[in-house]
């Protein structure tokens, strides 16, 4: 919808999200499709997210070591890296990778289904395509991104442990103790909860862009592309919002 303003787009997306809540929690429930989408969206993203998390943890450790060593604060590296990964880097990097992989694939898939009338065909086949396609995907992204983020955090921290052991020796127990000593619930829970919103945003935006794509195959590409762009932007906005809210709640 190139002619419509940003506001109209935002409004349409919001009403799309509202429709998700109106229709998503009424029968019939597409459980089998939901599980399949969880598998596709969650399990199959794990290798990508895992590699990213591993590199993130390793690089953070190796990069911060020289600076920390200047202050003689090498023993603070686990705390610093742990806080960085769990509070910010894990959620945001995972969400961005996820948006790139899943947001685009949802946008392209639903876009091509729209263009080839598969969505209409579902509707005449006694299936609510919104529930069957949109609700399952949005739920899958919302539920799977937090799991992926936790796993990426764990992998990243393990990579950080390996990175520390590349120069010098640290036991896993000491590393874990160091990381935990720097953490509180105020670090873990907001970071975990915000990933639900990231996942929801990625799912809703990908589905919206695909569900309402038009102009044939060109529209499908546009849907996939703009799904990623908008989702990435919204992730950062949500992150900013999350920082403000957790700050207001006194959890920072």
């Amino acid at each position: 919808m190139p002619d419509e303003s940003l506001l109209a787009e935002t409004g349409a997306m919001t009403s799309f999200a509202g429709r998700f809540f109106r229709e998503g929690f009424r029968p019939r429930y597409e459980v089998a499709e939901l599980l399949h989408q969880c598998y596709v969206v969650g399990y199959q993203s794990l290798p990508m997210v895992g590699i990213t998390g591993f590199i993130m943890g390793m690089v953070l450790t190796l990069q911060s070591r020289p600076t920390m060593a200047q202050f003689g604060a090498e023993s603070w590296i686990p705390v610093m890296v742990g806080l960085t990964i769990i509070r910010e880097m894990g959620p945001i990097i995972t969400a961005l990778i996820f948006a790139g992989k899943i947001g685009s694939s949802i946008g392209a898939e639903l876009g091509s289904m729209r263009v080839t009338e598969q969505i209409d065909a579902m509707e005449v086949s006694g299936t609510n395509p919104f529930k069957y396609l949109v609700v399952t995907r949005v739920l899958a992204t919302t539920l799977m991104l937090p799991v992926l983020t936790v796993l990426a955090d764990a992998i990243g921290l393990y990579a950080s442990y390996l990175g520390l052991n590349m120069r010098g020796t640290t036991t896993l127990a000491l590393f874990a103790n160091n990381v935990l000593s720097g953490l509180s619930f105020g670090d873990v829970l907001p970071a975990f909860i915000k990933t639900y919103f990231f996942g929801f945003a990625i799912g809703v935006i990908g589905c919206y862009k695909g569900y309402f794509s038009d102009k044939g195959t060109e529209g499908v590409g546009q849907a996939a592309n703009s799904a990623v762009v908008v989702a990435s932007l919204v992730i950062f906005l949500l992150d900013l919002l999350a920082v403000q809210i957790t700050g207001l709640m006194g959890l920072n």
């Binding site: 080839t116 009338e117 005449v124």
Partner: peptide
């Protein structure tokens, strides 16, 4: 709709 078949122009087979 179960009693009304619809043959889409683009077939609409699920890929």
């Amino acid at each position: 709709r179960a009693k009304v078949g619809f043959l889409f122009q683009s077939n609409a087979l699920y890929d």
